[in-house]
Design a protein around this nucleic acid. Structure first.
Lengths: 188, 188
DNA sequence: CCGTACTGAGACACTAGTGTCTCGGAGGAG
DNA sequence: CTCCTCCGAGACACTAGTGTCTCAGTACGG
């Protein structure tokens, strides 16, 4: 291990506080939020913010990487392969929505982090579930898998927005979006 | 009529060209696009752009109002009240997605134009169809109407993105999203 | 053919944000 | 207690965008 990678506990705490504040501020104000806003929200000086993240871009990258890593970890812990596709989809919804406004930053703006990382940690496992769904004839095959994934993403985005606005709880939202995605909005 | 509201044909054409270019540029580059970018894309000088729209904000407002008006006109022409809810929803999808990247500007950024205008021209007719769907038991009632509308909006957003990227045609997209929204993604 | 009105180009002032640097102070480790 | 490190505050240069203005050229109608 390189000793330069080891940080003091306070350093780690400050980093976390900055990323946390950045997630909230950016989710609220979008790309309009400035570094000063982030520093303010994090309760640190602007100079300190720049000591932790050299540029605005690197802050965004770190934030995105953080969100992807956390969402990926939740997906990895969800045991998607061992359960029926319907349940797996519900767990995916829960995992993504739980990461919430951190993920919203990535979706809203174009702060795409490492494409490979996104594909490896999020794309692949989700795609696997959908592919299994189509293969086992649980999911419809008359719509492209890619389109199905894109529509699923759209539903997730609006759900994150709903949860972020506290208009609906995480559990209700996850259940509703899973149900609507699988069954549709038609009655019965 | 106030004669100050009458414009020469060329003036109207230039206005349209600017709005058109602005819609494309903003759909592509998002809020990052500058007035210089818009002027460039419209093939006019920056000074001329400012002669037509006093500020960046007024340009965005005009663009949003334009998009809302066009989408509203399509909805009004769609005869939503006279057809079954399923067909009405398909027509809504087609109307909104057809306006395409003009509408994307509104959805992506927070350039909300006149809230009242949006509600009157878009919200009300769409809400009416959904309310009728719930009342006639075509649409499920175990999910709030508001949530259903929000999820519908999420599907529309991702569909606009798909169509904008030419990954799927307008007709296919409208059919797919209507079908998925009503029937869900489950096979059969 | 002429003049009027519009246009593009560019200079300009102004604002806001970014990233750098310095300095005095505070707080924790020894 | 003392030293050492980190922090906040603020000054600073720089960049990019906005909005204003002027001026020479041009298209178009009369």
């Amino acid at each position: 291990m390189d000793s330069s990678l080891v940080h003091s506990p306070r350093h780690d705490r400050t980093t976390a506080a900055i990323l946390d504040a950045a997630a909230h501020v950016l989710a609220a104000d979008g790309a309009a939020a400035s570094m000063a806003d982030v520093a303010n929200a994090a309760g640190v000086g602007r100079a300190t913010l720049y000591r932790y993240f050299e540029t605005r871009e690197s802050l965004l990258e770190a934030l995105a990487a953080d969100a992807v890593a956390e969402a990926g970890a939740r997906l990895a812990d969800a045991g998607l392969d061992g359960v029926p596709v319907e349940l797996a989809i519900e767990r995916i919804v829960r995992a993504i929505v739980a990461v919430g406004d951190r993920y919203a930053v990535i979706l809203r703006e174009e702060i795409l982090p490492d494409r490979e990382e996104v594909e490896r940690l999020l794309g692949a496992p989700i795609r696997a579930v959908f592919a299994r769904g189509v293969r086992t004839e649980v999911l419809r095959s008359d719509v492209t898998l890619e389109i199905l994934l894109e529509l699923f993403g759209g539903l997730l985005t609006s759900t994150i927005k709903l949860v972020g606005q506290r208009r609906v709880g995480l559990e209700d939202a996850a259940a509703a979006v899973t149900d609507v995605f699988l069954q549709g909005s038609r009655a019965q």
